[in-house]
């Protein structure tokens, strides 16, 4: 029914997982983030998660913290985030935002959901909003036809998995490990177990993120998940390469590499 649903279904028919990329809006600049995301979507990324910058990103490691600092330094506000959503959703692929709860609640829950729809966005990931606190959010996302993605973790009990999956639409975001975002040398062995536990509660697709940064890791995760989420690996390229056209080229290449291993799985 939704663009998100169709994207997972199509990938499934091709016997592969979807590739999901994350980038904070306004990093390295507002226009720069639009260019990079367009390059990602033209280089094999199926779904984009646009980060709403937040001053106190509790779930993020040093790499994304630094990117978000730069974005906030550029004075990226929610208006700008919506501008980025609008520009990149023209490519016809599913565009989600990922936001800590503070910016959404302050901006206005209804206003945020409406503006997402108007900008062409199709979903929102809220990493620090448990379903227990999300009554108004559920109402507004339903009303505005926005998919509502919550994040579960290896520490989630069966009771929590049941509650979260009942309230999720679109896909379930499984955090591969206990910790913050950032690149890791190995995929946590708890990721596969968590995905199996989630599947007992829902038939929705499950995407795995946190610490996935190499083609080897993408390949590994794709064996048990419906989607693979990569963030810090892209951000790091931009932090290390001041020349935007060069970092765009490097990111495009990395996306193509990921897309290729997903199709060879």
């Amino acid at each position: 029914m939704s663009l998100l649903h169709d994207t997972f279904l199509k990938a499934k028919s091709e016997n592969r997982a979807v590739l999901i990329a994350y980038l904070p809006a306004g990093f390295p600049t507002i226009e720069g983030s639009i260019k990079i995301i367009k390059e990602m979507l033209e280089s094999g990324v199926d779904i984009i998660e646009i980060g709403v910058p937040y001053s106190d990103p509790l779930m993020d490691g040093p790499v994304i913290q630094q990117a978000v600092d730069i974005s906030l330094h550029n004075k990226t506000g929610i208006k700008d985030v919506m501008h980025v959503v609008k520009e990149v959703s023209m490519l016809g692929k599913p565009v989600l935002t990922m936001s800590y709860w503070s910016p959404i609640e302050k901006w206005g829950i209804e206003k945020f959901a409406q503006q997402m729809t108007h900008a062409g966005g199709i979903g929102v990931i809220t990493p620090d909003l448990p379903p227990d606190e999300s009554q108004a959010w559920i109402t507004q996302t339903d009303k505005n036809n926005i998919d509502r993605v919550f994040v579960v973790a290896p520490s989630s009990t069966e009771e929590r998995l049941s509650l979260v999956t009942k309230n999720v639409t679109g896909f379930v975001y499984a955090a591969s490990l206990m910790g913050v975002t950032g690149t890791r040398t190995e995929v946590s062995n708890r990721a596969e177990e968590l995905v199996a536990r989630i599947r007992k509660h829902t038939t929705l697709p499950v995407a795995v993120g946190l610490g996935v940064s190499t083609t080897q890791q993408v390949k590994e995760v794709a064996q048990f998940a419906d989607g693979v989420i990569v963030g810090s690996a892209f951000v790091r390229i931009i932090l290390e390469q001041a020349d935007l056209s060069k970092s765009i080229a490097a990111i495009g290449q990395l996306c193509k590499d990921f897309a290729r291993v997903l199709r060879k799985n």
């Binding site: 509790l58 779930m59 709860w101 503070s102 990493p127 620090d128 909003l129 448990p130 227990d132 606190e133 919550f150 994040v151 579960v152 973790a153 290896p154 520490s155 989630s156 009990t157 929590r160 979260v164 955090a175 206990m178």
Partner: peptide
């Protein structure tokens, strides 16, 4: 009040 934290912390 309430709890606005990642699901990872809810069980703790």
């Amino acid at each position: 009040g309430g709890r606005f934290v990642p699901e990872a912390l809810i069980s703790a």
